[in-house]
Design a protein around this nucleic acid. Structure first.
Length: 461
RNA sequence: GGUGGGUUGGCCGAGAGGCGAGGCAACGGACUGCAAAUCCGUGUACACGGGUUCAAAUCCCGUACCCACCUCCA
């Protein structure tokens, strides 16, 4: 059974064939670190994390590069508004993003290059494009350098558009462009911009355009041809189209497959546009555990649009707790083999919803075994294996809370044990009124008691 | 104007010609002193109108509504 994935460029699900057997080069456009990460941002991180994990499971040696854009117009304006140095804001948000990824068990990529660390590589690439007749320095003395869209007949091939059909940006400032669709490879420094946000170049001081960084970094770390390039749908055009045009015009083959994850909206709006604060990762994590949010994100296919709501997140969390409680009841079991149906689902363009359905089927069988006092170990082993691949294994130490959690648990356990002892005595004497009163009292404190064949168990409500 | 996507049961969310994914909720049953948990069972869902087919939520044509990209955006 081969791994198949949807390729945006060909618009079809096709067999994944790596350039080099056993190896995968993966490049994903990371974030522009200009504001606190929200649920939408993190979806991309989670989706490509699952891709990475699945490829590794399949035995591939994966080189995963995910960049960080740490210089751009927004960072410049926002930092100025907030009275911060641009690099200070970018660095703060970068750390915030790392925390969000950690909280959601998004494993780090092989390397995470930052745009500002690769200016020489970008200059080199731009020079190559100029020499090849695909780019030119603006004639207006602005210091800008543009990619010449008309010089690249295949321009538009990734998103299947023709240059003449495209609307020129309304705010398109001609600034010496030969065609309104030409885009900046290098932006000459403006007097309003801080000196620190510019680098020397053959065209004067300035800073890189957005698209060129990915071409330069992908080329540097993955070579002139690599397997998969990913990002959010919004990046298809212009970003990815431009990246591909630049890289190919510079003589590279670039990506074999293009993957794009869909949006998360709230109230029908893109998160980047809407209100915001309540949907930042730190805010959501005050009410939900990271593992629950990750599960919610994976319960929908990565190419499906998700309308975010806390009600839906509640439901997802309730479902996930059932999986956890099965694992809990089944006891300490090592991860085993993956069920075939699960593998088939994942191989089919990362079908996490179908894969999760297999998890539930297995949980149900396991619970039934437990109910019959049969051996549930094989089921629990499969469930743990599946959750492991999805990065959702509750037993994984990454989900462990603060260090004093265990001490707190022990303290509550001792306290509750005394009350349960009294309740047991009341029940033995068939004094159910007293027994229930004790249970109610415990519940009022936020602790629920369940009677199981192995005696009463408590958990946080 | 160009390009791409969507509309599935009370809710979330898969599927993509032929036994009703899965979850949440609800209801009934088993278990329980009662609960909880768990298991078993219960649903004539596929925006609308045509068409193709032995068979359509799935294909074709048309209509409506929604969204994204074409400017920074995961």
């Amino acid at each position: 059974m081969t791994f198949r994935l949807y390729d945006t460029a060909t618009r079809e699900v096709r067999d994944f064939v790596p350039l080099e057997e056993g190896k995968v080069g993966l490049y994903v456009c990371g974030l522009t670190v200009q504001s606190e990460p929200h649920v939408g941002h993190v979806r991309s991180g989670v989706n490509f994390d699952v891709l990475q994990r699945w490829l590794r499971h399949l035995g591939y040696d994966v080189t995963f590069i995910r960049n960080v854009t740490d210089i751009d117009d927004k960072i410049l304006t926002k930092s100025a508004d907030q009275g911060l140095a641009w690099y200070e804001l970018a660095y703060r948000m970068k750390r915030e993003l790392d925390r969000a990824y950690d909280a959601l068990n998004v494993a780090p990529p092989t390397y995470e290059p930052a745009a500002t660390g690769h200016v020489p590589e970008m200059i080199e690439l731009i020079q190559l494009l100029i020499d090849g007749g695909h780019a030119y320095a603006a004639a207006d003395g602005s210091g800008d350098v543009y990619f010449d869209v008309r010089s690249w007949p295949q321009y538009g091939e990734l998103t299947h558009q023709r240059i003449d059909d495209m609307e020129a940006a309304e705010d398109a400032d001609p600034r010496g462009k030969r065609d309104p669709r030409d885009f900046a490879l290098w932006k000459g420094r403006k007097d309003s911009e801080p000196e620190t946000a510019s680098w020397p170049s053959p065209w004067g001081r300035g800073r890189p355009g957005w698209h060129i960084e990915c071409s330069a970094m992908a080329g540097k770390y993955l070579g002139s041809a690599f397997d998969i390039h990913g990002g959010g749908v919004d990046l298809r055009f212009p970003h990815h189209e431009n990246e591909q045009a630049q890289s190919r015009a510079a003589g590279q083959r670039f990506a074999s497959y293009w993957m794009h994850n869909a949006w998360i909206t709230t109230a029908g709006e893109k998160m980047s546009k809407s209100l915001g604060n309540s949907l930042t990762i730190p805010a959501v994590l005050q009410k939900y555990r990271g593992i629950e949010l990750r599960y919610y994100l994976l319960a929908a296919h990565y190419r499906s649009h998700v309308e975010f709501s806390f009600d839906a997140l509640d439901e997802a969390a309730a479902g996930f707790r059932r999986i956890e409680s099965f694992l809990d009841r089944a006891g300490d079991v090592a991860a085993g083999e993956l069920p075939e149906a699960f593998v088939a689902a994942m191989n089919d363009d990362l079908g996490t919803p179908a894969a999760i359905a297999v998890v539930y089927d297995t949980v149900r069988q396991g619970n039934a075994a437990l109910g019959n006092r049969d051996d549930a170990t094989p089921y629990a082993a499969q469930v743990r294996a599946m959750l492991g691949v999805l990065g959702l294994d509750p037993a994984d130490p990454v989900w462990a809370g603060a260090a004093d959690d265990q001490r707190l648990t022990d303290a509550v356990d001792a306290l509750v044990a005394g009350l349960l002892e009294q309740r047991a005595q009341a029940r033995a004497a068939k004094d159910f009124a007293t027994a229930d009163a004790i249970r109610d009292r415990i519940k009022a404190a936020g602790v629920e008691v369940e009677d199981t064949p192995d005696g009463p168990k408590w958990s946080l409500a």
